[in-house]
Nucleic acid binder design. Structure first.
Lengths: 115, 115
DNA sequence: GTAACAAAGTTACTTTTCGTTAGTAAGTAT
DNA sequence: ATACTTACTAACGAAAAGTAACTTTGTTAC
């Protein structure tokens, strides 16, 4: 792999956000702490990958994982840390940009209304 | 693949930016139109992937490709379209966020100074 | 008490995408 | 004619993603 002239921090940040599902997971967590199954239900990502991404995000300090042993089945809640919350304007920015510029083609429209 | 409750436009936007190298390529193009080899030199991405990504970005309308047949060896310049330029605040936002929050570990520091 | 169910994963396996190395086509320089 | 440049493309092994089945701990249903 080659070397780049980019700032390594920016490069690492991009590498994080530029991983499949990361952005959507963080966006989903913007609305508040959520359980594993809630995230799994809200996003078209498999449990395997969701688990992997959440582990990464926790390690990088964007997401906090809290286990509740008291309640009935062990409940696990994921929430954004300060670092994660600091991404809010970026995620909202992407949302706005998408609304303004993205167009869906026939396939995508179809995909969205069925199956 | 499951269905999501997300806005399909946002989902598609995220899918675009959440592809490896896309963000860095767009960021690199913020500084003005650039040739294939310039991008290849500036980013740690291989020609194969760069070509693939640029083709995607062109198809999605973020990037414009212009060929100059007049000059010596065929020159190809890539530049941001309006749609691409509209991402400026997002990309800058990620840059700022990275500067503030990302920490590099020993490996990454080492990787950056040699090889 | 045991069969069935749920949450939060993990394992095993297949398909896609990546990364690396070579090679191509058109043109230039020597 | 040979070597060199730009902008790619092809081929192939390696890494990541997708899918389905399984595990663990506890719960409720009968």
């Amino acid at each position: 792999m080659k070397e780049s002239t980019l700032c390594p921090k920016f490069e690492k940040g991009m590498q994080l956000l530029g991983k499949r599902w990361t952005g959507l997971i963080l966006y989903q967590l913007l609305s508040g702490p959520q359980r594993f199954c809630a995230l799994e239900g809200a996003l078209p990502v498999s449990g395997r990958l969701l688990s992997e991404r959440l582990k990464d995000l926790e390690k990088e300090g964007l997401v906090h994982r809290q286990v509740f042993t008291d309640s009935a089945p062990v409940r696990v809640e994921y929430s954004l840390t300060e670092m994660g919350k600091a991404l809010t304007p970026v995620l909202k920015g992407i949302e706005t940009w998408s609304q303004s510029w993205i167009e869906l083609n026939a396939d995508e429209m179809a995909n969205d209304s069925e199956e």
